[in-house]
Amino acid sequence: MTAVNARTDARRTTVYIRETPVAYTEAGKGETCVLLLHGLGGTSDDWRSVMRELARRHRVVALDLPGYGDSGPIPGTSPAAVADFVWAFADVLGISRAAIMGHSEGGSVAVNMALQRPDRATRLVLVSAAGLGRLINPIFMVLGATPVGALVPRLAKLPVGPEALVAALALFGSPRPWRVPKPWFTKMRQAASSTGVLVHAVVTLRQGVSARGQENLVLDSLPQLPQPVLVAWGTHDAVLPVSQAWGAVRRLRQGRLALVPCAGHLLPIEAPDRLVAAVAPFLAEVALVTEGAASTEQSAGTGASST
C-alpha cells in the first residue's frame, strides 16, 4: 500500500523483507540515494524536516527500523543484524549504492552497514551515533543493567505513563525541549503507548548497554572505513558525550566533524535546519563525483566510437 503526500511529494509505502513488513517514506529524485536510519525507540518520522530539505537534490528513503513504527520485529536486535536486514531492504528497493545517515542507534547500524558492504556505502553521516565509546548517561546504564529497565513497558499501561516517558526523553534529549516540534510528541506518545514497541526498545537497550557502559562498540572498526564520514553532534548532548565525536574523527581515514551549538541528542528533531546546513554540502560532493564519473564514461564512450 502506498500513500502520497502531495505537499512534500513524500510517498509512504510498506514492503515485505524476509516475510517482515517494513514501512518507509521516500521523497525526491537524483543520482544519489540517501538512506536515513533513526535511533532507539524512534521512527522514520524523526527525519521529517531533514528529509524535506535533502529531497530537493537527492532520492531520500527513511524506514521504520525493525520493531518500531509500522515495521515488524526481526529475531536479532544487534546493530549488525539490523544492518544486514537493511541491506536486504535496499536490495528490494533497487538501491545499489547509498549515502547512509544514522542517528544514535541508527548511527551504529550505519557503521555496520558500511563494514558489511563498503562497496555500496558511498558516504556516512553519523549523528550523535551510538557505539563510539563506553560513556553514556548513567540513567541508561541503570535501565540497561538493572531490573528497572523491565519496568518501563509497564508504564505504558498507566494513565499518564506514555506522556511521562516522552517528557523524560525530551528533557534528556534536548537542552531546550520547547524547541522540539509538537508532532514529534504526538508520534512518540503513540509509540510509548505500545507495550510491544517498549519491550523491543528495552531488549535492544539491554543488549547494547551494561554496567560498563555501551557495548557493541564500533570505535575500533572506524579505521577500516574507506569512505568519507561526517560526524555530527550537538554540543549539549546529555545522552552521549560530545567528546566521542572527536574520538571518532581521529580514527577515521576521511573523517570530518560538524558540531551544532546548544543542541542535544535529538539533533535531527530539535535542530534539523542546522543539521541540514552541515550535511547538505557533504552529500553534494557525492553528486559531483557521480556526475564527474558519468561525464568521464560518456567521453570515453564517444572517443571509442569515433576511432
Rank of each mutant, 00 (worst) to 15 (best):
D84R: 08
D84N: 04
D84H: 07
F85G: 09
V86H: 02
V86Q: 04
A88F: 01
F89D: 00
D91K: 00
V92K: 02
V92G: 00
G94T: 11
G94L: 14
G94Q: 13
I95H: 06
R97D: 06
A99L: 07
I100G: 02
I100C: 06
M101P: 01
G102R: 09
H103T: 08
H103L: 10
G107M: 03
G107F: 01
S108N: 15
V109Y: 00
V109Q: 04
V109A: 03
V109G: 03
A110S: 11
A110T: 07
A110R: 06
N112A: 03
M113Q: 11
M113Y: 10
M113P: 10
A114P: 03
A114N: 03
L115E: 05
L115C: 06
Q116D: 09
R117Y: 08
P118E: 00
D119P: 09
D119K: 12
T122C: 07
L124A: 03
L126A: 08
V127N: 00
A129G: 13
G131Q: 02
G131A: 01
L132Q: 08
I136A: 03
I139K: 01
F140Q: 12
F140I: 14
F140A: 15
F140D: 14
M141T: 12
M141Y: 01
V142G: 09
L143P: 06
A145F: 02
A145C: 02
V148S: 02
G149C: 05
G149M: 06
A150M: 04
A150R: 15
L151I: 09
V152K: 06
V152D: 00
P153W: 15
R154N: 05
R154P: 04
A156D: 01
A156L: 10
K157M: 07
K157F: 13
L158G: 06
L158S: 05
V160E: 12
G161H: 13
G161D: 10
P162L: 12
L165H: 12
L165F: 11
A167M: 00
A167R: 15
A167W: 01
A168T: 11
A168S: 15
A168N: 09
L169G: 10
L169E: 04
A170R: 11
